[in-house]
Simulated assay, not measured.
Amino acid sequence: MSQQRPIIIRRKKVIHKHHGGAWKIALADFMTALMALFLVLWIVGTASNEQRESIAEYFRTPLSAAITGDGASSEKVIPGGGPDPIHAEGERARIDLKRQTRPSEERRRLRRLQQRIETAIQGDSSLRELRQQLLIDETREGLRIQLVDSERRPMFELGSDRVAPYMRDLLHTLAPLLNELDNRISISGHTDSLPYVNGQRGYGNWELSSNRANASRRELVSGGLDPDKLLRVSGMGDQLPLPDAPPDDPMNRRITLLVLDTEASNRIQRQGELWQLAERAPLPETD
């Protein structure tokens, strides 16, 4: 009888290890946040309007201001508030940049007026020759229309406020176009630096520029301009020559029509109100 080998069965012992509790921590955090959310919603739902404003003001307080104590003080239930100097100012800067790069509706209307004027001048054969003496550009105050003089074709008789016929036709053409907008208008007269015989003692460039501005005003009104649109008529003498032009250049003899934007118009009206208040104020008593 042969000797049999013993049968050895090897069994691998399986040890069930713990899978960890990270998911329990995440679930606990989620449930805590959810409970806090419902708690906040319940508090806000039962709070008064004043308490809600206080809560909103608290959350508007920038963290840097709350830590350093530079935030705006508040007398409400929850202290805080004030604009965020980082976020709000940045947003305001971006908005201001957009306003500078994107023309407003008023500016677009002024540009359309410029196109209408140029088209009207170009379409009139009798005024087409004056196009070189018509300078139109945009300024911070509005649309500026300058009617400049020349030795060959002066807008006024020499040393006089008598309007030349072609200047009258040009002003009569501009009048109905200026009526298309509600913007107020400023008219100023300018001269070159050539002095009169009597200098500053008699009739001179100040009087001449003022008289020419008023003569232009009369022609515009005669051409159909609404008189209520006029806000300012002034004579500047020879004090504001054209850029890069010698003081005695004939181009300095000009009439400037300024179609004012709303901001410039309001500023001029406020200045007039301040002058009226100053004139009505009683003089200080002296001993």
Score class of each variant (00 low, 15 high):
residue 88 A to H: 15
residue 65 A to S: 13
residue 85 P to H: 08
residue 72 A to Y: 03
residue 70 D to I: 00
residue 60 R to F: 00
residue 63 L to H: 02
residue 69 G to L: 05
residue 64 S to W: 01
residue 73 S to I: 10
residue 83 P to Q: 10
residue 65 A to K: 04
residue 74 S to N: 15
residue 77 V to W: 03
residue 88 A to R: 11
residue 65 A to N: 06
residue 73 S to C: 03
residue 71 G to Y: 01
residue 59 F to Y: 14
residue 89 E to Y: 10
residue 86 I to F: 12
residue 82 G to Q: 07
residue 77 V to M: 11
residue 64 S to G: 09
residue 75 E to Y: 10
residue 82 G to D: 11
residue 60 R to D: 11
residue 89 E to P: 01
residue 83 P to L: 13
residue 60 R to A: 09
residue 76 K to Y: 06
residue 66 A to Y: 01
residue 66 A to C: 00
residue 69 G to C: 07
residue 79 P to L: 14
residue 88 A to C: 14
residue 76 K to Q: 14
residue 88 A to T: 15
residue 69 G to Y: 03
residue 59 F to E: 12
residue 61 T to L: 10
residue 69 G to N: 06
residue 88 A to P: 06
residue 84 D to L: 02
residue 80 G to Y: 03
residue 86 I to T: 15
residue 72 A to S: 08
residue 79 P to N: 14
residue 74 S to C: 07
residue 84 D to P: 11
residue 90 G to V: 05
residue 78 I to P: 00
residue 80 G to E: 13
residue 71 G to H: 04
residue 83 P to F: 10
residue 73 S to Q: 13
residue 63 L to F: 05
residue 91 E to W: 05
residue 89 E to I: 10
residue 90 G to H: 04
residue 75 E to H: 11
residue 60 R to N: 13
residue 89 E to G: 01
residue 63 L to S: 03
residue 71 G to K: 00
residue 67 I to T: 05
residue 75 E to M: 06
residue 74 S to E: 08
residue 72 A to V: 09
residue 62 P to C: 07
residue 88 A to S: 15
residue 73 S to H: 10
residue 83 P to T: 09
residue 84 D to N: 15
residue 64 S to H: 05
residue 76 K to E: 13
residue 72 A to F: 05
residue 91 E to S: 08
residue 78 I to F: 08
residue 69 G to Q: 05
residue 61 T to H: 03
residue 80 G to T: 10
residue 73 S to A: 14
residue 69 G to M: 04
residue 86 I to H: 07
residue 74 S to Y: 07
residue 76 K to W: 08
residue 77 V to S: 12
residue 75 E to R: 11
residue 59 F to G: 08
residue 62 P to Q: 03
residue 75 E to S: 13
residue 90 G to Q: 04
residue 60 R to I: 02
residue 70 D to K: 02
residue 67 I to S: 03
residue 85 P to I: 09
residue 87 H to I: 15
residue 73 S to V: 12
residue 68 T to G: 06
residue 76 K to T: 14
residue 82 G to T: 09
residue 67 I to W: 08
residue 78 I to K: 01
residue 87 H to L: 15
residue 89 E to C: 05
residue 82 G to P: 02
residue 84 D to F: 00
residue 84 D to T: 05
residue 80 G to P: 03
residue 68 T to V: 02
residue 88 A to M: 13
residue 82 G to C: 10
residue 80 G to V: 11
residue 60 R to P: 00
residue 88 A to L: 14
residue 72 A to H: 06
residue 62 P to I: 01
residue 85 P to Q: 14
residue 88 A to Q: 14
residue 74 S to I: 05
residue 66 A to D: 02
residue 71 G to C: 01
residue 60 R to S: 11
residue 88 A to N: 15
residue 89 E to F: 07
residue 84 D to S: 12
residue 78 I to D: 03
residue 59 F to Q: 12
residue 81 G to V: 06
residue 81 G to L: 10
residue 90 G to W: 07
residue 67 I to E: 06
residue 71 G to T: 01
residue 87 H to K: 15
residue 86 I to R: 12
residue 77 V to G: 02
residue 66 A to K: 07
residue 76 K to N: 14
residue 89 E to A: 07
residue 67 I to A: 08
residue 61 T to N: 06
residue 91 E to V: 08
residue 68 T to S: 13
residue 65 A to H: 08
residue 79 P to T: 15
residue 60 R to G: 07
residue 76 K to I: 03
residue 83 P to C: 02
residue 68 T to W: 00
residue 91 E to D: 11
residue 82 G to W: 04
residue 84 D to M: 02
residue 81 G to A: 12
residue 87 H to P: 04
residue 68 T to K: 02
residue 61 T to S: 09
residue 79 P to F: 05
residue 64 S to Y: 00
residue 69 G to V: 05
